[in-house]
Design a protein around this nucleic acid. Structure first.
Lengths: 118, 118
DNA sequence: CAAGGCGTGTACTAAGTAGTACATAGTATA
DNA sequence: TATACTATGTACTACTTAGTACACGCCTTG
């Protein structure tokens, strides 16, 4: 298990802990609703990343983007999945179309859609 | 378990069977690589839909769109998930932007990106 | 009338998911 | 130096996923 997720969480938590002692394994675990031993194992990559809900709670606590943390955990947010499942042909086509485009091109589309008269 | 997936597969299979006797539960099951009793249970919604690989094989046999069948099974193709996981912020933003747009608007983007000078 | 194809029922399993509960040992502090 | 908080190790559990193996009874057709 190549563990980017756990190390990332640990680094982030220890960084925050410099200025806020409540970012101990125990206290953070309690805040996100798991046992300290479980969070410890997650951070050390001894067990796979937790469920979506716990990851989102973790992201909120750490001030990180939930989608990024989910991605590190090899997951995709369920609201995005739902959007795709509602119109599978359409979204499959759109995503496959965008997946090889450079960031700036995708961003341009996002902006045009947001601002434009679509 | 509200079973749209199973009934859909059963309907499709029985329709094809009108003109092709090889679309029996037994033979189709063998072709997609599962036990006949398992396909039978899947079609009757007695067990949840099979894995992504089997669903894709099923789609191919039935002449259906794999993304649609996966959506009926409550899943999203792993290649789409991978595209999102590679650039989570970007794709999360794009999908959330598109999810409330009417079909024709999304389609327009797909076409413009395909044809255009992006 | 038996041989083969048909759908389905029952029983089982191996691996993965998502944790909890408790014990231990080190560290800090009052 | 007692206490209290810290991280971590060990053991266990309940649920889900993704099926297989095999037997049964029902047609049908040669």
């Amino acid at each position: 298990m190549a563990d980017t997720f756990g190390s990332y969480v640990r680094d982030r938590r220890e960084a925050l802990r410099q200025s806020d002692a409540t970012f101990s394994v125990r206290q953070l675990a309690t805040r996100i609703g798991v046992e300290p031993s479980f969070l410890s194992k997650v951070e050390r990559g001894e067990v796979p990343p937790p469920s979506e809900g716990k990851i989102i709670a973790l992201a909120r606590e750490l001030g990180e983007d939930a989608d990024v943390l989910l991605a590190l955990a090899g997951k995709v947010s369920s609201d995005l999945q739902e959007a795709i499942r509602k119109r599978p042909e359409l979204f499959a086509a759109a995503i496959r179309q965008l997946k090889d485009m450079p960031d700036h091109a995708v961003l341009r589309i996002v902006r045009e859609v947001r601002d434009g008269d679509w």
